[in-house]
Design a protein around this nucleic acid. Structure first.
Lengths: 136, 136
DNA sequence: TAACTACATGATAATGATTACAGACTAAAT
DNA sequence: ATTTAGTCTGTAATCATTATCATGTAGTTA
């Protein structure tokens, strides 16, 4: 954890608590998830600090920001890569643990360095399939 | 356009204007983009109508909702499938026109009917690469 | 170790997108 | 023409996120 200092990231007690939470997290927490977990240890914790810290970590490539949830940001502590299958009806999310090698031509990449990919599969979950049928 | 009636979608003048806009749109418009375009023809158009209509179209599979833009919903009239390369620094978006066949096992799909996929590539655009170097 | 400085914290206010509401309206069916 | 279920619109409410700024402190330097 000490190496954070080397990348211009001051280690405050609040930040260490946030890092602890992220390290032990399997899912895709929102800022609110982080806040709720950390406020137990730091009753004075504010959302601003959570957002600032997540932003700082993101800039340093320590967490990824997901956008599977419209209108809400989700962060991924980023261990094994995984993808998501989202129900277009109810937004239920299922993880797909698998990785894909996706070719992108030199021309398409437009000078970008590609660091990763994330696939969002769309579909209908079993219960929304039923609803759709009965609606028609 | 008449077929919309058959799927329980009433064709009001406002909705026709929205559909016209979407049909001629190449990109990934936000609700605001739709509103701005349609309010010219319907000065009384309200955001609520735009959201309602987009929601109704989405439920009927006529537009897809993207979530490449955190904190803002984007819609895709959905013609040829394409993917997105997003700069993790400045959020610039480049379209990748290509389609991928991505296998998902029976077990992974958890009973879902998969209707499509969308890949979000992450990377650094040329100008953000430079910034990063000079910052260290 | 003390003092310094740049950066972090946190309470609050502000913003911006989206949703909720409710009364008036209207498309489409009969 | 009548009916009715669904739609429209202005407004208010909500929710996530960002901005502000005075205060505090991590990490550096003397």
């Amino acid at each position: 954890m000490e190496h954070y200092r080397d990348i211009g990231f001051k280690l405050t007690p609040q930040r260490i608590a946030i890092l602890d939470f992220l390290e032990g997290h399997k899912g895709h927490p929102t800022a609110e998830d982080v806040y709720k977990a950390v406020v137990k240890r730091f009753p004075t914790m504010s959302f601003a600090t959570v957002y600032n810290t997540l932003q700082a970590l993101k800039e340093r490539g320590r967490v990824a920001e997901l956008s599977i949830d419209p209108g809400k940001r989700r962060f991924d502590p980023g261990r094994e890569p995984h993808h998501h299958l989202v129900c277009t009806g109810c937004r239920r999310i299922v993880d797909i643990h698998r990785s894909y090698k996706l070719p992108v031509s030199e021309k398409e990449r437009a000078g970008f360095d590609i660091t990763g990919n994330h696939v969002e599969f769309h579909g209908r979950c079993p219960s929304c399939k039923k609803k759709l049928l009965s609606a028609v």
